[in-house]
Structure formats: C-alpha cells, structure tokens
C-alpha cells in the first residue's frame, strides 16, 4: 500500500500541469510583458469589453496575414467596446518589434518569449485567437486563419458586443 501511494505521488509529481482554456472558462492570467515599461499584461483591465486575444509570431505567415483584418475590425468596433490584445510568442522579441515597426497595428501587443502564455492557454495552433466576453469568459476559440473566417469572427464579435 505504501509503495502504491509513493508511486502515485511520484507520478503526480512528474505529470505536467494542465491549464487548457476552453469555451466557457475564464481567461487566465499570464506573464506577457507590455512594451516599454516592463508592465505585465492584465486581462482584468479589459473587464466590460469584448476582447480578442490573438497569439502570433513573425515566422507564422497566416498570423501576419490576419493582422490587417484584426486591426481593421478593432478600429471599426472600438467605440462599441471591442479591443484586441495580441501576444507575440517569438523567441526573439526584436524580430517582432522590427515587424511591428514595418507593419504597425493600433492594438496592444504583449511579448512572451518564454512561451508561458501559450502554455497556460494551451494553444493548439498558430495563430490562435480567443474571443473573450464582457465578463471575462472565453466564448470562442479560432485556430488558424483564412480569409473566409472573417465573416464568422465579425459576427461573433458583434453578438458579444450586443449582449
């Protein structure tokens, strides 16, 4: 019995933590750094707004392709209470900063070179975006990006803004 308990404890100790963010779960905190002043990203600051959390990297072509659309949607719906928070997961943050300098966006980009944020969200694909409602609950998860997805994303954002 003692051996069994010890083995179980050992197995538990060796197992990786599971944080999977699913539709309906609260948006978790994660240690992404905001540019400039070493501040950490705080999703609590966006309570009362519909937020699209977008994971992207410079080596991911569909991520870059989605950015003009996301930026346009954000600017269209900003006054209605919509915001976009991008989390860049490049191992070298300089790459992302260079890209953003050449292709600027109007929304906030946080940087997580350690990969802790995608680990916490358990990101399944690049890009991945999480649509969060005004109460801070994840309501939709988009994996990948195709131009055909635009209408669906726009409709989901509008539906959440109307709640």
């Amino acid at each position: 019995m003692k051996t069994f308990l010890l083995s179980a404890l050992l197995l538990l100790g060796c197992s990786a933590s599971v944080y999977a963010v699913q539709e309906g779960s609260s948006v978790p905190g994660c240690p992404a750094a905001l540019p400039g002043n070493n501040e950490k990203l705080d999703f609590g600051a966006y309570k009362g707004k519909v937020v699209l959390v977008d994971f992207w990297a410079t080596w991911c072509p569909p991520c870059k392709k989605s950015m003009p659309f996301i930026n346009g949607l954000r600017n269209e719906r900003l006054k209605d209470g919509f915001e976009v928070v991008a989390i860049n997961v490049d191992e070298n943050t300089e790459d992302a900063l260079r890209y953003l300098e050449a292709h600027p966006v109007d929304y906030v980009t946080a940087f997580d070179a350690s990969g802790e944020c995608p680990r916490v969200f358990e990101v399944k694909a690049m890009p991945s975006s999480y649509l969060v409602d005004k109460q801070g609950k994840v309501r939709a998860i988009h994996l990948g990006y195709r131009d055909e997805d635009q209408d669906a994303i726009r409709k989901q954002v509008d539906a959440l803004l109307g709640e």
Binding site: F55, A57, W59, C60, V89, D90, E91, G115, P118, R119, V123, K124, A125, M126, S128
Partner: peptide, 10 residues
C-alpha cells in the same frame, strides 16, 4: 509545441 516552431519554420 505550436508556438515553439520558430526555428523549424526557418
């Protein structure tokens, strides 16, 4: 992991 493929994408 999907977010760790930066080097593989080169």
């Amino acid at each position: 992991a999907p977010w760790e493929r930066g080097t593989l994408a080169k």
